[in-house]
């Protein structure tokens, strides 16, 4: 007996919303990626608590794939940030307002 299931869900939704607000409101590309990571972590929390609630293992198995997806996403995202920083000299998304063929 730990806590009501709904408390875990509410905690996860608050973390998810915080990550989404970070991804929406920040202008630094690195902080946007950090927001996405926070959102993925909240999703992992929901999977694990659901796995505990129904006493089934697929929830925990999906979290492993979620970790793999998060690792792949962050590697590609940071490589994109490095690439765009070399081209424009900035990681602030407001500075990308020039079109150039």
């Amino acid at each position: 007996m730990i806590v009501p299931y709904s408390h875990v869900l509410i905690l996860a939704s608050i973390i998810f919303i915080l990550g989404a607000a970070c991804a929406v409101a920040r202008r630094n590309l690195i902080m946007i990626l950090v927001g996405v990571e926070i959102m993925l972590n909240a999703a992992a929390l929901v999977f694990i608590s659901a796995s505990l609630f129904w006493q089934k293992l697929p929830g925990q198995a999906f979290v492993i794939f979620l970790f793999a997806v998060a690792a792949a996403e962050v590697a590609t995202g940071l490589a994109l940030i490095v690439h765009i920083q070399r081209r424009t000299g900035s990681v602030i998304s407001d500075d990308y307002n020039h079109m150039k063929g």
């Binding site: 730990i2 939704s13 608050i14 989404a20 609630f53 006493q55």
Partner: peptide
């Protein structure tokens, strides 16, 4: 969004059920 999520969680299954220790 948080308000809507709270409503959905409130209406959803297992609102009062406590998690087992496993």
């Amino acid at each position: 969004s948080l308000f809507i999520m709270g409503i959905l969680i409130w209406q959803g299954p297992g609102r009062d059920a406590t998690l087992p220790l496993a």
